[in-house]
Amino acid sequence: MESLGLDLSKIPIDFLLNILNIVLLFVIVRSLAYKPIRKFMDARTARVAAEAAKAEEKAAEAQKVKAEYEEKLQNCEAETQAHRQAARREAEAEADAIRAEAHAEAQSILDDARARAKQEHDETLGTMQRDVVDLAFGISEKLLGHSITDADTKKMADRLFDESLSGGKAS
């Protein structure tokens, strides 16, 4: 190539040739490459569209699964809540039953204790009464034994023969 200084008389031919080259290249490339490229591009677009559709489908499906899981989660929470309440009710019922049983048992123990106390009180009272009677009679025996006179003995004889044996002279 001549020195860097540009020769203006040549430029238009070179330039035209270049332009011609480019156009020619374009025509050739277009005729050779356009259809395949077009086809490729269309296929790519279709593939992208398909993938996009698939992605959307997947996203919808994911959404659906998410919704199902959320629904199941809510159901689970509701079931758990229901179970918890049922368990609480059952526990309270059992606690009530235990309390009632304990109360009844306590009452029974109390009644037994009262009955035993009364029995012991009555027995003690009876024993005391017998002791008092024994004492009284012991004292009476001693006193009367010493204080009976002949007159008392004669009165006994009169009572025997006048009252008990309805009096009168023996036949």
């Binding site: 003995t153 009169d158 025997l160 023969f161």
Partner: peptide, 22 residues
């Protein structure tokens, strides 16, 4: 008879028995 029954009282008892049974 009890220990404190005197002879007099005893005699009286016998008298009553005789009066009742002969």
């Amino acid at each position: 008879c009890a220990a404190n029954v005197s002879d007099d009282a005893y005699a009286y008892i016998c008298e009553r028995i005789a009066g009742r049974f002969g």
